[in-house]
Design a binder for these strands. Structure first.
Lengths: 143, 143
DNA sequence: CTGCTTGCAAAGGCTTTGCAGAACA
DNA sequence: TGTTCTGCAAAGCCTTTGCAAGCAG
C-alpha cells in the first residue's frame, strides 16, 4: 500500500489534486484530514478521525472535522456508512463494496464485491432512481 | 390487512400471546405499543411510535417507548433498521426482506425478497457467524 | 410480597450551529 | 477586499439513566 505522508510535498500534491478534482478547495485542515483518511483505507468514526488527525502537528477542531467529513461524503470522496445509530462511519474507499459488521466490537470489515452478487429486479419508486446499494452483513459470536 | 384494535379483547389477546411467545411480559404499555406497531406493518421512528401510541387512551412515556422498542427488537418481535444516523427505524415485519430508502423524504419502503437474490461467498471473520444481511438501496430524485 | 416496569426529568453522546477572527483569492 | 473557512463553545436532538412510585405474578 502506498503510504501518504502529509509532510511529503509529493503526496501533499496528490491530496490537493484529489480534493480539487472533487470540487473541494484544499485548505490546510482539509488536506490534513484527507491524509488521515487516505493514509490507510479504513472505516473510521468522526471521533477517530479527529484523534488520528491530531496525533501530529497543529490540531484541527472537532467542528472542522465533522464539517469536512460531511463535505467529503457529499462530494463523493469518501463514503458515509450507517451500520448502527451510535455514530456514523466513514469509509475511504468509495468503489462499490460491502461490509461485515460486528455490533459487539463495533468493527467493520470489507467484503470483496466479487464475492457478492446481487440480482435486483425491483423497480425504484416513481420519480426516483437508485443512487447506491449498501449491503451490511451483521455478525454475532459463533455458538 | 387485518386490523388490530387494542380495544378489542380478541386482538388484545393475540398481542398478549405474541409478546408472551417472545418472552416479553405483557404490560399495559407494551401491549399498547405493540398494537401500534402491528396495526399496520410500517417503518416507524421511535418518535412516531410515541405519537401514534399516544393518539388514544392513556399516554405512554417516552422512556417506556424507547425501552419497549429496544426490548422488542432484542427479542425478535420487530426489526431495528439503521438507514441513516439521524434516528433508528423499527420495522414490524421481521421476515427477511430489504429496503428502499429515500434520504430526502426519509421514507423507507420494502423490497420484496423474491426480487433480490444475493449470492455471498465471503466467509465471516473467525469466531463469528452471520446473524443477518441488510440490504438498503438508497434513492435519489430522478434527473 | 418481591422483583420487574413505569414515568419524569436530567444526563449523555454525537453532531450542528452561531459568530468572530483568520485565511484565501 | 470580499468571500470562504476555522475554531470555540453552546445548543440540538435522539436516546439512556437514576430513582421513586406502581404493577405483575
Amino acid at each position: 500500500m502506498s503510504q501518504i505522508d502529509p509532510q511529503n510535498s509529493e503526496h501533499r500534491k496528490k491530496i490537493v489534486q484529489l480534493l480539487r478534482s472533487h470540487g473541494i478547495s484544499p485548505t490546510v485542515q482539509r488536506v490534513k484530514i484527507a491524509s488521515t483518511m487516505l493514509l490507510r483505507p479504513m472505516h473510521l468514526s468522526a471521533e477517530q478521525v479527529l484523534a488520528l488527525t491530531n496525533q501530529t502537528g497543529r490540531p484541527v477542531s472537532k467542528a472542522t472535522v465533522y464539517n469536512s467529513l460531511g463535505l467529503f461524503a457529499r462530494k463523493g470522496l469518501i463514503r458515509e456508512l450507517f451500520v448502527d445509530q451510535e455514530r456514523a462511519f466513514y469509509d475511504s474507499s468509495t468503489h462499490p463494496h460491502h461490509h461485515f459488521y460486528n455490533p459487539l466490537t463495533q468493527e467493520i470489515c470489507d467484503i470483496d464485491p466479487k464475492q457478492v452478487h446481487i440480482n435486483m429486479n425491483a423497480q425504484p419508486p416513481a420519480g426516483t432512481e437508485i443512487s447506491g446499494i449498501e449491503v451490511v452483513v451483521h455478525l454475532q459470536p459463533k455458538e
